[in-house]
Structures are given as C-alpha cells and as structure tokens.
Design a protein around this nucleic acid. Structure first.
Length: 350
DNA sequence: AGAAGGACCTGCACGC
DNA sequence: TGCGTGCAGGTCCTTC
C-alpha cells in the first residue's frame, strides 16, 4: 500500500509513504485542476536516464515496432510527427545496435548505440519528451496504452549472433515510448553534437562567472531567459518559477540589470532547486513516472508553482499568477519585488 | 534582439 | 448527459 499526502509546504505536516508497492498507479499523487501534463524538465529527464541505465545498458535492440494508424495495412505510423527521422530508418538501422550508454543533454535523452558488427557508423538516438513523452521499460511488447507509439525489443548482450535472431522470451525487455500530446521528438543521427548544437550550458555545470557574464548580455525578462534553451538547457516552467522564488527575484525583472548579489542568489536558487528535485526523483504533477514506473516527489516541495491564491510559505501573502512569455508564471508579490513597473505590462490573461 | 502569437496536440474542467 | 469551449505548455516559426 502506498499513501502519499500532498502538502502545501514541506513543513506543514507528515508525509506517509510506503515504497513496497511498485505500481505506478497506486503511487499517483496530487492532480491539480487542468493539469494533465507532467512536463519533463531537467530533473525528470535525469531521473528517467538514471532509472533506465541498469535496465537497458549493454542490451541489444532486436526489433523496432511503430504503431500504425487504423488497420494493419496502413503504412502511416501514428508517431510520424514525433519521428524527426524517417520511420524506415528506425525500423532498418536500429535493429542490431547495442546500447552503450545513455546521457542527458538538457531535456534530451541521448542513447549511444554501437552498430551491429561494424555495419555502419556509430549511431545516436535522441529523445525529447516534449510535454507528455514517457520512456519506460516494460515486460511486454504489447502496445498497452492508447498513446504508445514505438516499442523496441531489447535482448541480453552476447545472446545475439545476428540482428534479427530470436532470444528466449524471459531474456527480452521492451522499451516503450508513449506520448499523449505528441510534442516529443525522436531522432536518429550520426552527429548528435550537430543536432544539439543550439543548446546553452547545463545549469548544474555552468560556473558562477560565466552565468553572470551571460546574464549581463541579455535584455529580456528573467522568466523568458530561463525558459530559453539557448541560454541554459533544461529549465522549464516549473523550475523557472521555483528558482526565481528561491532567489526572491520577480519573474519580469530585467536580466542585464540584475546586480551581482541578486545574480548570485539566482545562480544558487537554480542549482538548489534542480538538485533537490533530482534527489526527490522529479515532480509528478500528474502521471510522471521514471523508466521503472516510479513517481517523483518534488511536487510536494513546490513553493509557488500552481499555488495561485494560496499563502506564501515565507510571508503568507497570496501567490499570484501572471503571464510572461505566454507562460503561466507564479510568484509571491511580497517576497519577489523589484519589477512591478515592468510587470505591469505583463498580461494577466493569456 | 526580444516580445508576442500561432501551430501542433490531447485530456480534463467547467458552463450551459 | 452531452456538447462546446478554454486551458495547460515545449519548441519552432513568423511577424512586429
């Protein structure tokens, strides 16, 4: 049995939790109105990568199946919009490859693949989960969910003497990609550096000096800047709001006008927020689960995100919601002062 | 250069 | 109960 009591703040009560049941449905947590997205940002993607590693590293892809539209005669995969490379490339180039390593680059998951018997050059599978993408390791090849678009069969390494041979069923494992809104992207490439070249620095790796220098060169509002993947890679709406709250900085504040002290607070705020979220296994706003089907816990620690009208955990003022860069933005009007005039031009409705 | 808005996409809440 | 509408948001693109 699993009981998770969602809290308004980490200090307002006990968390009852039991980890014995590994059923993701039973671990489902708070579901706010209008929330069906789980928004995989840096901590969620990192959690997925860490959970997948022990399950798929060293395994060989023996088959790839794409869900087809309607009848089995249809040749059009439902994932066609999700596939950034032609469907036939997934079906022809992936079988025979072994998964050598997996890494996170911003919000992207990069699978390093070793081709079968030197068949071709090294290959990389890039997965961006968009808003509702999910990558899970399953014990069945069935397209169990309505929105499962791709399934890859993974066999134990060393069992294969040909890319299309058969292995005992118990040694097989299936990697499923499902995506309700189809905002995710799957790409096969030999040049991942090219495909990911536009991304900024990782917020957990960038040095304080470099962060400060980048801030000084930008004239946009901080919230917009934090969401810009060319500036820093991996931050999305949840962690932008939470980081700005921790730093006590208004989301509409001007990046270049941030003094050294406040820039340092933001730098620390981002790193603390992301690190804590990773430690908690990410945020499960709705159905987020890692590669093994476990939900995250960081939503319990959200201090402003989707807490509109609720009291600030620091000062008690009501959390406000505005729109910045077409994104819902949550902040405390008392703890995050300093850009009221600029924020006056920010719309309250989308 | 930066802001704003549209397109993509689906499930859910809400009002009627 | 069923229908229509609005909303959520990551990324890319166009327009201003």
């Amino acid at each position: 049995l699993v009981v998770v009591i969602p809290l308004k703040s980490p200090d307002s009560g006990p968390i009852l939790k039991c980890d014995r049941l590994k059923d993701a449905r039973a671990r489902r947590v708070w579901r706010g109105p209008g929330c069906i997205a789980f928004m995989p940002e840096l901590p969620e993607v990192e959690t997925i990568v860490r959970s997948l590693r022990p399950l798929v590293l060293g395994r060989q892809i023996t088959a790839v199946e794409l869900r087809r539209n309607g009848s089995s005669r249809s040749s059009h995969p439902t994932a066609s919009r999700i596939l950034a490379s032609p469907a036939r490339e997934f079906e022809q180039r992936l079988p025979g490859c072994s998964i050598e390593s997996i890494e996170r680059v911003g919000k992207n998951i990069v699978f390093h693949l070793r081709p079968y018997m030197g068949r071709e050059t090294r290959l990389y599978l890039l997965v961006h989960l968009g808003m509702t993408g999910r990558l899970t390791c399953e014990t069945t090849p069935e397209f169990r969910q309505k929105h499962t678009h791709l399934v890859m069969a993974l066999a134990e390494a060393g069992r294969r003497d040909s890319p299309h041979g058969t292995a005992p069923l118990e040694e097989l494992r299936w990697l499923h990609y499902s995506d309700i809104r189809r905002f995710g992207r799957l790409r096969l490439t030999a040049r991942p550096d090219e495909a990911l070249s536009g991304l900024g620095a990782d917020p957990l790796e960038i040095r304080e000096e470099e962060f400060f220098r980048l801030l000084r060169s930008r004239r946009s509002m901080l919230k917009s800047l934090l969401l810009d993947q060319h500036f820093l890679r991996g931050i999305g709406n949840i962690y932008a709001d939470e980081s700005l709250f921790r730093a006590g900085i208004h989301p509409a504040a001007h990046a270049a006008r941030l003094d050294r002290k406040r820039a340092l607070r933001l730098y620390e705020g981002i790193r603390e927020t992301l690190s804590q979220a990773i430690a908690q296994g990410g945020s499960s706003i709705s159905d987020f689960v890692d590669g093994q089907g476990y939900a995250g816990n960081f939503q319990v620690y959200h201090q402003v995100y989707q807490r509109t009208g609720e009291p600030c955990v620091r000062c008690g003022a009501a959390i406000r919601r505005i729109i910045v860069s077409s994104r819902g933005t949550h902040f405390c009007p008392r703890c995050q002062r300093g850009a009221e005039r600029r924020a006056a031009g920010v719309s309250l409705k989308k």
